[in-house]
Design a protein around this nucleic acid. Structure first.
Lengths: 265, 265
DNA sequence: GAGTGGTCTAGACCACATG
DNA sequence: ATGTGGTCTAGACCACTCG
């Protein structure tokens, strides 16, 4: 295991071929927002396929928010946006690379210590149980871009305690150890930069920050990681597509007391 | 037109029945995070169905982030989160009702006037072209919850100029006029409350706000609305599920100059 | 009425997980 | 070896849009 994640399925599936082809055609301007795509029948011919794979391809493109489909009409292109992948969500490094930037990091500290109340709550361990916490400054082309606070359960964190967290990818190390990430829940909110945040990011205290909380788990629902990322709100924003008739994995919810406090301070 | 949106498909489809059943079982605790769902074969029997509808149901539940699926193993429940619907995203009123709160609004002003540069950019009209703009304070159980700034293209906005924007739903009026919303792109960012924001929300200037930009369009990609919502960051946050192997409609991106300025001020 | 996507059937084979 | 979900085929009928 872990193998399945490093060496994913071969991409020889028909529907993957179709998706790749259409997505490329949307990105390079062959089809532009508002344009109609070929009919399913035409795509079946073009890719020598039955309707199944064609419809699976369209379904996934609709989920991404790239196209709109409907009875009695051809599917149309909605946007050329390049949505995120699971890896680009889990890992800042992967995300920066996909933007053509050079990822870097400077570890402020890493420690094995008892979980405080908030951390214990999110990691679903008992308060006081030993966890591995760290504070890192993340860099893009050597410029500070985010303050990263992570907490791991002890059995996960042990794998990175003797790892040089300034040189490589934590998630790659964990993957090699057989830690399979399957699901992520992100919490997006706004806050003011603390003195520590401001010092690390090189901005004024009280500046607006975009805060991304992250709880990652495996297939069985075991919590593998709890993280808190803080970005200068002037640097970036999160974007989200929603198409009528397609489920959206996002929702707005009132804050629930402590659930939004620091993981590790 | 419009009709299709007010009177959606009947929900007698097999896969809808299956989804409703499983979702209910997840919400009421029959299946809890980490639990295995029945196998597809069992669901086929239970709902007297072939695999198609069963697989479509599982696919949509996976898109919502509720379950994890994979070769050789049964599907497992990941979370009980209640994700948003298209309507709850488009309309604050719908969202508040789904939370069991009483929606309200107080219009500060509404006007027909030339589009400024930013508004024109987002509505894809030429600068100076007449648009309909408004500023409303949104209420939940009579408490201020958001500052709402909206701009409509003239042909859309004309429908609401002679409408009492304090009493009913704008989107319902537009729906009745045949304006079909199909796609929404949201931009989530953080900012500090301006004096106007602070006064309306009853908070201190400089307080952190969660800012939700919204651009809505129809099936042909015509922009129907450009809106800017500002919430007290201490009141709420956005949440987002991501499951490995399922496309995510969200992404992080650097700010692009002016694209994040006010729609109407 | 012709074309289109939405739903469904009844099979088949494959890749993977587990015991 | 067995059971599981992932992929695919080759049909069918329906609901909807549009000329």
């Amino acid at each position: 295991m872990g193998q399945a994640a490093t060496m994913p399925r071969k991409t020889s599936q028909r529907y993957e071929t179709i998706i790749t082809h259409i997505r490329a055609a949307i990105q390079d301007g062959t089809y532009r927002p508002g344009d109609e795509l070929p009919s399913e029948a035409e795509l079946c011919q073009q890719f020598d396929s039955s309707r199944g794979p064609v419809r699976q391809a369209m379904s996934l493109l609709r989920t991404e928010g790239l196209i709109s489909t409907g009875r009695g009409r051809r599917s149309t292109v909605l946007t050329t946006a390049a949505t995120g992948t699971f890896d680009s969500i889990l890992s800042i490094s992967e995300w920066l690379v996909s933007l053509g930037k050079e990822p870097g990091q400077r570890t402020e500290w890493i420690a094995r210590r008892p979980a405080d109340e908030i951390t214990a709550q999110h990691l679903k361990v008992t308060e006081g149980e030993k966890v591995v916490s760290m504070l890192r400054l993340r860099l893009a082309d050597d410029e500070p871009i985010a303050v990263e606070r992570i907490a791991f359960p002890a059995e996960i964190g042990q794998h990175i305690l003797d790892f040089d967290t300034d040189s490589g990818s934590i998630h790659r190390v964990l993957l090699d150890k057989g830690v399979d990430f399957e699901s992520i829940t992100r919490t997006v909110s706004a806050m003011l930069a603390t003195d520590e945040d401001a010092r690390l990011l090189g901005i004024a205290p009280g500046s607006p920050l975009l805060r991304l909380g992250l709880v990652a788990s495996d297939k069985q629902g075991h919590i593998l990681e709890f993280a808190d990322y803080r970005y200068n709100a002037e640097d970036l924003a999160m974007h989200l597509n929603s198409v009528r008739g397609t489920p959206t994995p996002a929702w707005l919810a009132p804050h629930e007391g402590v659930s939004d406090d620091l993981p590790a301070s």
